[in-house]
Design a protein around this nucleic acid. Sequence first.
DNA 1: TACAGGGTCATGTCGGTTCT
DNA 2: AGAACCGACATGACCCTGTA
Length: 277
Amino acid sequence: MGKEELLQHYFSHLNLDVQEANYTKCPKTWREINFVPSFNRLYLIEQGEGEIQVGGQRYCPSAHDLVIMPAQVKQSYTTISDATYLKYWVHFTAVVGERSLFQLLDTPVVLHLTADAFIHAQHKMQELRKIHMERAWTSPLRKRAAMLQLLELYFSCIGLQQIQLRSKDADKLNVIIAYMAEHIDQRITVQELARQLHLHPNYFITYFREHMGESPIQYMNKMKLEHAKQLLLTGELHIHEVAERVGMDAYYFSRQFKEFTGFSPSGYRASHRAEGK
DNA sequence: TACAGGGTCATGTCGGTTCT
DNA sequence: AGAACCGACATGACCCTGTA
């Protein structure tokens, strides 16, 4: 429990926006020093060489490298020879709650792709660029879909081990989410949750929402209803027993469940079991 | 077991203050 | 300047009851 669950939350609450997408050969003058961008950059390098600095670290990405230059971090880039980069590039924002995804996660700036992964990424970049140029009325939807696939490729190539949750905020949120999971069968108050972090309840709610995009009680209720779904499908428990296992009053549980899934608890069980047959 | 209406009180928000 | 706290007030989560 912890990192994986938090990552799933971040990904399912990710707000994406693609501002630019293109494929270019960098001019010899390609250079910008010590700037802090408001958007993320993603490069897929086909050929050439150059130098990039992100947060004081120096990199020299080359062919078949995927590069992520996160928003809100001091960075520089420059050419280093006549063999300038030929690359696909995207400018995008990726936000969870009020935070940029890459403020929440510490991931490698440069990732060398296998031949297969490179071809896959190249196709996605070509698709993204085409959609961006078309500017059709459905483009925003298709751009986001293509961008999500690129991010999925990036994250699955680096793997869980190489993703670090940044800062003490992630530790604090892990403590709270673990506490919620341990007490899923109980009614937990905001006061109790806030006490785990030694914060004032009002401040805790603001803090939680800022990082998670929803209030602590909303988050915990969703967690309970997800758990209830599993109980309904895997067990033979009565509806009122399922409600008990997630620490909810039976009547209130039915109402919440319907709001959350569109099905009543018994309807959900019946329809999903029928599908499984 | 589902659904609806109504009442209560915990939760969430906002604006300001204090602390480090 | 940013983190944390506090009080007032609006909102919504939750419970209870009745009906089908």
